[in-house]
């Protein structure tokens, strides 16, 4: 038994945490690239990374700080952590105290870092602490909270957000690689892999021979890598299937059906085929499908109309 409002909060806790983690990692890669290239602007990889986050472009130094701490930007890391924490407060009786304390501690540390960041913008340490903080939260969740309905909302939110983020990043890079005039830059591809924490895993799979179509294949279609779109879709699908079963609402299979379809299309997809077609459209369509899954989830479990649910 789970209140609809609390289910909504659980779902958004993990979506916002996923977004914070993703932003922290992308900014970390962008800052690192900037360091390697002196004061001159690079070929645009840094811009690509930042624009994928939908942040306003300004000076590189301040941009990283803004990506972490700008309160006016709803996608900044601090904003995401703040909203995740507010949602956790709303779901306080559903999550464990250990989870709450971890999230609350992360929020308090980050607020403290905001004060320090204006003096010494060593953003790498901020990144590390956000990423580790979020990982720790997932570990604590796994170890202290029941893996029932509430846990499935956490999973659904986390993996839907992840599928969308990876697809969007791929689209920014691959749109250029396959549609644009210039061939993809090796360093850019490495930056893309690192932004998904995928460089080591990629090398183990393909060796350090980094090629655009392989990067595309790995981040989009790999069955086992935890940040690939296919893997994310498969976890989201299984979470939604569990929700249908646990809530006893068989009629609510729409979200499950849409997630299943997305997962199947990735299961049976092939990179050559996708690249021969229109990769940009393919990738943006993944985002659209995720949005439809989200709406179906809300229609079925959270914002359903009363007359459909009254006892006979």
């Amino acid at each position: 038994m789970l209140l609809s409002r609390v289910a909504d909060s659980l779902y958004w806790i993990s979506r916002y945490l996923e977004r914070a983690e993703h932003t922290a990692r992308v900014v970390d890669v962008a800052v690192d690239l900037g360091l390697g290239r002196g004061s001159t602007r690079d070929d645009g990889t840094i811009d690509l990374l930042y624009t994928s986050l939908e942040l306003p472009i300004s000076e590189p130094g301040s941009l990283a700080v803004a990506a972490f701490f700008d309160a006016a930007n709803a996608n900044s890391v601090l904003s995401c952590i703040t909203v995740a924490r507010e949602n956790a407060r709303q779901a306080r009786e559903e999550i464990s105290s250990e989870m709450w304390q971890q999230l609350n501690g992360l929020f308090l540390r980050l607020k403290q870092m905001r004060g320090d960041a204006s003096r010494t913008p060593r953003t790498h340490f901020v990144s590390r602490s956000v990423i580790e903080g979020v990982h720790l939260f997932h570990g604590i969740t796994d170890a202290t909270m029941g893996h029932g309905e509430g846990g499935q909302y956490l999973l659904a939110g986390r993996y839907l957000e992840r599928a969308m983020a990876t697809a969007r990043l791929l689209d920014r890079f691959m749109g250029r690689a396959f549609d644009g005039p210039s061939p993809p830059d090796q360093a850019g591809l490495v930056a893309l892999l690192r932004s998904c924490s995928a460089l080591e895993a990629y090398c183990r799979h393909y060796t350090a021979d980094v090629r655009p179509e392989r990067v595309m294949e790995f981040l989009l279609l790999d069955a086992n890598f935890p940040r690939s779109v296919r893997f994310s879709a498969s976890i989201a699908e299984s979470a939604l299937r569990s929700l249908g079963r646990l809530s006893g609402r068989r009629a609510g299979g729409d979200a499950e059906r849409l997630a299943g379809r997305l997962h199947a299309s990735l299961d049976y997809g092939q990179v050559g085929e996708i690249l021969d077609g229109e990769p940009h459209l393919y990738l943006t369509d993944i985002g659209r499908q995720c949005a439809r899954i989200h709406s179906a989830l809300y229609r079925t479990y959270i914002l359903y109309s009363i007359d459909t649910a009254l006892p006979a």
Binding site: L3, S4, R92, I302, I306, A309
Partner: peptide, 30 residues
């Protein structure tokens, strides 16, 4: 609510139909 293991509800989670109070859950009205 946590100590007792019962849901914490707000007014918007509850509704009254035919003089019975229900809460909106993911499994429907309870």
């Amino acid at each position: 609510a946590r100590e007792m293991g019962v849901p914490l509800v707000e007014g918007r989670d509850l509704l009254v139909h035919d003089n019975i109070v229900y809460m909106r859950t993911t499994s429907g009205l309870r």
